[in-house]
């Protein structure tokens, strides 16, 4: 079911983006952002659990990810294609646009007490909150994790751990230094914040 929905979102994105590309530079920011909404959601709630919330995400982080998608440093077939035609100003404008939107509530369950304790212990070992900050709200180029989609968090940590996501080797090192059960607890904890 999830797979099918994801495929639908991909097709929509490709179609919309083709249209936007054709419209070239005359687009308003709302038009430019429309293509994003087909996957990341009209109201900021992503259409698939493996797709991240970008509404209310940190501006610097969104910009760096778009930049890395364009350069190919972060691999994602859809995003690489979309970012390819974006100029620096477009990426900055889109980052500012989405950062200014309210963060949506996915109503994910709070983590169990055991998971919270395990997540906090893991944090004290590698210091996640030294960058993501006290309540995992992020700042600047560091993303907000609090309330992010659970499945996206899990997928991302797994991809950092395997090296598949290669645009932040610091996260790869930290994910590898953390045992998998701790990561699972961390994912539940962050999603439920």
């Amino acid at each position: 079911m999830a797979v099918r929905r994801f495929t639908a979102c991909v097709s929509a994105a490709v179609l919309v983006w083709a249209g936007v590309s054709a419209a070239a530079r005359a687009d308003t920011i709302d038009e430019k952002a429309a293509v994003c909404s087909s996957c990341h959601g009209e109201k900021g709630v992503p259409t698939d659990k493996n797709i991240p919330i970008i509404w209310g995400q940190q501006e610097g982080y969104l910009y760096l990810q778009l930049r890395d998608f364009k350069k190919g440093a972060r691999k994602n077939e859809i995003m690489n294609g979309i970012a390819e035609s974006l100029e620096k100003d477009d990426m900055k404008e889109l980052a500012a646009y989405f950062a200014a939107k309210p963060w949506p509530n996915l109503n994910q369950a709070s983590a169990s007490d055991a998971d919270v304790l395990q997540a906090k212990t893991a944090n004290s070992a590698v210091g996640c909150s030294a960058c993501h900050l006290d309540r995992f709200q992020g700042t600047g180029t560091v993303p907000r994790l609090s309330g992010q989609s659970h499945d996206y968090l899990a997928k991302t940590l797994a991809e950092f751990r395997s090296g598949e996501r290669a645009n932040n080797p610091g996260m790869t090192s930290l994910a590898q230094a953390t045992p998998e059960p701790d990561l699972k607890a961390m994912e539940a904890y962050l999603a439920g914040l």
Binding site: L64, C131, G170, S173
Partner: peptide
């Protein structure tokens, strides 16, 4: 990684 944290590993 171009403007991102670069520790070359981890301290734990």
């Amino acid at each position: 990684p171009d403007g991102k944290l670069w520790l070359g590993g981890a301290f734990k």
